[in-house]
């Protein structure tokens, strides 16, 4: 028996909206520590890693480990039927072929349930080591969204370089070139409006803007986003989802042929 209840159901709606265009399907792995997902996009250059902790839910029960194969487009269709203020409960029997989603309005006068058909999905788990990065940059998620959106209108790839001067995003295309530099800035009173640059060594890597732009669909989940960069390694774009957990996007760098 698996059961997970979250009062702030809109978080689940936002999570699925953030993932569904990158990955069409994947396994929700549930255990007594929580719910996780690892899924790659069809070209295998980007990976979504979602971790929701058991204690972040208002109620969580999982009697045995299960992998529930989810089609995210279908899950999104069902979650669109939930109100933004609804409490959402996920339920499945052991070895079930469906996941039940129950939506309760705050006034308790409307309760609905939907069954999502589960799929059998062969998925490859990657071992992602904990490691120190050359540069870690925390910035407002709205700022990240703006940068990648603006640069996507100019070019296809972005060179991200972190130095002691700041973090610079550069692109070029048919219309010309663009450079946006952010400096370490802890002046704003609100922590979520600050930019923190933790630099161990300068690093510069090139990435496809299409993916970085797609990751910014997670903006509604968190006021800040963390970018982690190390030479010759995928970038990590991480959104902390309150006390519930995090969603991380990994993207392989563009390298010279």
């Amino acid at each position: 028996m698996f059961e997970a209840r979250i009062t702030q159901g809109s978080v689940l709606k936002k999570l699925v909206e953030a993932l569904k265009e990158l990955v069409t399907e994947g396994n929700f792995d549930v255990s007594n520590t929580g719910l996780s997902l690892q899924a790659m996009d069809s070209s295998h250059v980007c990976l979504v890693s979602l971790t929701l902790r058991e204690d972040g839910f208002d109620h969580f029960r999982c009697d045995r480990n299960m992998a529930m194969g989810i089609h995210f487009g279908n899950l999104s269709k069902i979650l669109k039927c939930a109100g933004n203020e609804d409490t959402i409960t996920l339920k499945a029997e052991d070895n079930a072929d469906q996941l039940t989603l129950m939506f309760e309005a705050p006034s308790q006068d409307r309760i609905s349930d939907f069954d999502l058909k589960l799929m059998s999905i062969e998925s490859e788990h990657l071992g992602i080591p904990d490691q120190d990065y050359s540069a870690e940059v925390k910035l407002p998620s709205s700022e990240y969204q703006r940068i990648v959106r603006d640069l996507t209108s100019i070019g296809d790839t972005v060179l991200i370089s972190a130095t002691k001067e700041g973090i610079k995003f550069s692109t070029s295309g048919d219309v010309g070139t663009a450079n946006i530099t952010l400096r370490h800035n802890t002046t704003p009173e609100k922590p979520e409006e600050q930019t923190f640059i933790d630099l161990k060594e300068p690093v510069a890597l090139t990435f496809a803007l299409r993916y970085l732009n797609n990751f910014s669909k997670a903006t509604p989940l968190a006021p800040q986003v963390k970018l982690s960069l190390t030479k010759d390694l995928p970038i990590v774009v991480e959104y902390q989802v309150g006390e519930l957990g995090s969603v991380r996007f990994y993207l392989a760098p563009k390298i010279d042929d």
Partner: peptide
Amino acid sequence: MHQEPLTAYFPSA
């Protein structure tokens, strides 16, 4: 330029 698949960076667990 090209991209290597993520499996080139992270081993299968």
